[in-house]
Design a binder for these strands. Structure first.
Lengths: 201, 201
DNA sequence: TAGGGAATTAGAACGTGTTCCAATATGGGA
DNA sequence: TCCCATATTGGAACACGTTCTAATTCCCTA
């Protein structure tokens, strides 16, 4: 549970100011996710987020410099949550390939089960600008860790890291394709499985 | 030169109406590319495109349903052009791996040489919606063909196609990462080379 | 408990993608 | 050649992300 750093630290700080700020931030994030869940990127409108979270529009912008950042931060948490879930019930399979495929499939199912929220995340990822680089990096790092963890216990080798990185990229590109309407969710699963089998001997 | 279907057919049609329409369309596309080249996605403003192309704003929208579509169509041509360039001077190397790496490197250099235009394309790709699915598909298909062509002459096998698809996805995701400021152009080249070497035994 | 500095608020305002419309220009067919 | 469908135009209008400001509220500290 020691993965998240910033937000949690603030929560622990007993100062009343910090506490109310953390609470506000949380409310905004929650509202954002809820709205993204039903309607995707376009359904998340800054004015609405502010109104529903009970804060002023300017306050939302004080916490999140842009709509993309807001959506990215909300989804960093989600992906990290996904990582924890996957750890709780470890991937099945005796071979590394099998475990990785299993984990990728589960991740895929988990994401496509909330299509609008995922679409919103992907669109934010796809139109991210350098200011949001750190949030984008956090997401792909999380995904990379999920994959290396599935390979085997202990430190991943150089090669493991390279393979995980490629799989993360295939994962991202597949999602972009899916959100862009190029192909359906079954194609994501197929592509990921094929990539895993080709990369992990 | 028989790859492009729609637009060229129209050009061949001698009707005066069709000819002036094709000319307008071309002007808009050219202006779009020029603007994207210096300033990226944000520098392409619909009003400016219309003004500089000498047409009304409504006319731009008659030809291209959205800014994303406009940028995508303009870049489909560019990627197809890239494909032709790469065919003119065939990739170097006796092994398939070498040829693919060569082609990927050249494609990468070609794209990062016009950073703003590429950034605009990637951002359009990343925020594409299902309405633009066909344009997105054309771009990744082109890239896929570039890669399979580099592998060997003749029909690509099932496995070739799968590998090419993965490499296309890595290519796309790398570009997204680059545009998003996560990593520099040298990382794209490194990732692509590693992926190619891992996938093509 | 009073003062001061920071956070928050409400709302106006701006930029740009997108839509809409009435008026006009254009080109093909009778 | 004249007429009509249709493409084009100019510009207003709208939506939403983003910025800005003046007034207000909140909390820490002396």
């Amino acid at each position: 549970m020691g993965m998240v750093t910033d937000s949690e630290d603030v929560t622990e700080n007993g100062s009343a100011l910090a506490r109310s700020q953390a609470a506000r931030r949380r409310r905004v994030l929650d509202v954002t996710l809820a709205m993204a869940d039903r309607g995707g990127f376009d359904a998340v409108q800054m004015r609405d987020v502010a109104a529903e979270a009970g804060v002023a529009l300017g306050t939302v912008y004080r916490y999140f410099e842009s709509k993309e950042r807001l959506l990215l931060e909300a989804n960093v948490e989600q992906v990290e949550l996904l990582g924890e879930r996957l750890l709780e019930r470890p991937p099945e399979g005796t071979e590394a390939v099998e475990r990785v495929v299993d984990v990728l499939n589960r991740a895929c199912r988990w994401l496509t089960r909330r299509p609008d929220a995922t679409a919103a995340m992907v669109r934010a990822l796809g139109s991210a600008r350098p200011t949001e680089a750190d949030a984008v990096a956090r997401i792909s790092t999380s995904m990379g860790q999920i994959i290396t963890a599935a390979m085997h216990a202990g430190e991943p080798t150089e090669r493991d890291l390279a393979v995980a990185r490629i799989l993360t990229q295939v994962w991202l590109a597949s999602l972009v394709g899916w959100v862009g309407g190029v192909d359906g969710p079954e194609v994501i699963a197929r592509d990921l499985e094929r990539a895993a089998r080709l990369l992990i001997a």
